[in-house]
């Protein structure tokens, strides 16, 4: 075999490296979406987002604890029916005669029974779901960029990138996230992003028989949410956490957390 001298080695090395550098510069400079490697996002999302900002109001005074929303959510979103995981659930707050507080959510609140024994001082239902926080701790802690907040205000999970590490589940102060038992990725309420993107209502909002859940696009004139927000003192859950929740409650009792 012919030995190459140092000069030839270095000069051919330079050529190889220069080619590598040039081609790599191309990939560094160009944004990934226009690169050769992948498809582009099919919609003009920023344009859509300019016209959309979703708003969700829960009227806790109206909830009758029938669980229709809980079932509908599971069916709509492929959450296993027989597992104790819920994208939306309903809690019953029961205040006993000596101010003891019980909070229960059997089967996510899909069917509440009568309470045996003594008559409670006060009891009421509180529907819960992801608050789609404006400053979401779950997004901050994700180590792989698998969760994000869209321009129209919904926090989503990328099931392909999620590694199931559960950091986000721990980070959520509302317990709104869970590990999907079949897919082993983080799952959560999306305000039915597939429905609202098509102009439909989230399933839970549509099936609620008493209008305890109100949903709309805040940038639409005539949406049902804006007048409620204007005329009422709305509350959010755990405001002191600084997460800026985007589900607004009406008539929330002070003991609710």
């Amino acid at each position: 075999m012919k030995a190459i001298d140092r000069r030839t080695f270095i000069s051919s090395g330079i050529k190889v490296l220069a080619t590598g550098l040039l081609s790599s510069l191309v990939t560094v400079v160009l944004p990934p979406a226009t690169g050769t490697a992948g498809g582009t996002a099919s919609r003009e999302w920023p344009k859509l987002w300019q016209q959309r900002e979703w708003g969700f109001v829960v009227d806790a005074r109206k909830c009758i604890g029938c669980g229709t929303c809980v079932w509908a959510c599971k069916r709509e979103n492929g959450v296993p029916m027989d597992r104790e995981v819920y994208r939306t659930w309903v809690e019953r707050y029961v205040i006993g005669p000596n101010d003891q507080l019980y909070i229960e959510s059997p089967q996510g609140g899909a069917s509440f029974d009568r309470i045996g024994g003594s008559v409670p001082e006060k009891s009421f239902f509180v529907p819960k779901l992801c608050n789609q926080c404006a400053d979401p701790p779950c997004v901050q802690v994700c180590p792989v960029g698998a969760t994000y907040r869209t321009g129209d205000g919904v926090v989503l999970v990328d099931r392909v990138r999620c590694v199931g590490c559960r950091y986000c589940i721990q980070a959520c102060p509302y317990g709104a996230r869970f590990l999907h038992p079949d897919l082993m990725v983080a799952d959560k309420c999306t305000w039915c992003y597939h429905r609202i993107s098509k102009g439909m209502l989230p399933a839970c909002v549509q099936v609620c028989p008493v209008g305890a859940r109100i949903f709309g696009n805040l940038k639409d004139k005539g949406n049902p949410v804006t007048p409620i927000m204007a005329r009422n003192q709305v509350q959010v859950l755990k405001p002191d956490m600084g997460t800026e929740p985007r589900v607004f409650y009406l008539g929330l009792d002070k003991v609710v957390r």
Partner: peptide
Amino acid sequence: PTFGVYGYYRASN
């Protein structure tokens, strides 16, 4: 692909 188009995530998601 499509990571980073709109933010720190895959836009195609």
